[in-house]
């Protein structure tokens, strides 16, 4: 067991697979609710939360950082909704106003007060999945990489949330008004979804950074959307596409001697492109074929 946990390649692949799984579980619903770009906003603005929590407590990871990130993520969404509600600014522009402000504030604080902290703008954007096996913590008698521990927790929490609230999430994504009229609190579901996105983003931070995390949230879900018209299958396919991307991405990155996280994320793009062209239902090929087949009904 410890040998497995000490194996850099195994830990890199495991971390990547966990990031992909946790991201795809949430991303599926974000894509369906047309809120994909909120994950972009959140993953940037949590830098602000991470720096503020570090300044207050000097905790670089752990539960305080996670709580701080969740709050910053929700703050981002809350501020966005507030700006949009003035109706002076459209909603997409509101997202674009809020997260750069928080991100900039985070970077500024980082430069002013926190030069020694391990976070720098490079890590913030890209992470370094190649080193996750170095930073371990004792757990049940083993030395387990921190990234693996926190990503496992995030994945389990996300999985639990999606399984427990599957029908609530489905209805909130499909018909917000009916969900509200039935008392199934779509707004609460939405905020929990985004809170978990923040938590997952901060857990994935060390491994893949803020920007690549977005790729794992959005791209596998968008790929799965092209391949199926069942929500449950879309979830499964999104997870599968994400995990396979990390598994293919690693050896490719080693061979080409380039960023591992970047290659893993690029692989999700390759899958999206493949689905876009070849999907029997919604791809170019399917479109071309369907045009010649009369749609029944």
């Amino acid at each position: 067991m410890q040998a497995f946990l000490n194996d850099p390649m195994a830990m890199i692949l495991l971390t990547g697979a966990l990031v992909a799984t946790s991201g795809a579980l949430l991303g599926t619903f974000l894509v369906l609710q047309r809120q994909s770009m909120l994950s972009d906003a959140i993953s940037h603005s949590i830098v602000f939360g991470i720096v503020v929590v570090w300044l207050l407590t000097h905790a670089q990871s752990g539960p305080l950082q996670i709580a701080g990130a969740a709050l910053t993520g929700i703050l981002t969404v809350f501020l966005t909704e507030m700006v949009a509600r003035t109706r002076r600014v459209k909603r997409d522009a509101a997202i674009g106003l809020v997260f750069p402000a928080l991100f900039a504030a985070g970077v500024l604080l980082l430069n002013l007060y926190a030069r020694d902290i391990h976070i720098d703008s490079h890590t913030v954007l890209l992470g370094e999945i190649g080193f996750v096996w170095l930073d371990t913590m004792p757990l049940a008698g083993f030395d387990v990489p921190q990234a693996v521990v926190w990503m496992s927790v995030a994945t389990l929490v996300n999985l639990g949330f999606v399984l427990a609230c599957y029908k609530e999430l489905k209805l909130a994504s499909f018909d917000w008004q009916l969900a509200a009229a039935l008392g199934l609190a779509p707004a609460l579901m939405f905020y929990i979804l985004l809170g978990l996105t923040s938590v997952t983003a901060v857990a994935a931070f060390d491994a893949v950074g803020a920007v690549l995390f977005i790729a794992f949230v959005i791209v596998p879900a968008a790929t799965a959307y092209l391949l199926t018209d069942r929500l449950s299958l879309m979830l499964l396919l999104a997870v599968l596409v994400g995990v396979v991307s990390t598994l293919c991405g690693y050896p490719l990155a080693v061979r080409l001697d380039v960023s591992i996280g970047g290659t893993m994320a690029s692989m999700t793009g390759v899958f999206l492109l493949t689905a876009f062209v070849l999907s029997p239902r919604y791809g170019l090929l399917g479109h071309w074929r369907n045009r010649r087949v009369k749609v029944p009904g």
Partner: peptide, 9 residues
């Protein structure tokens, strides 16, 4: 008011 492209039956 709803998205008819939603993946469901």
């Amino acid at each position: 008011s709803v998205d008819w492209d939603f993946p469901t039956t």
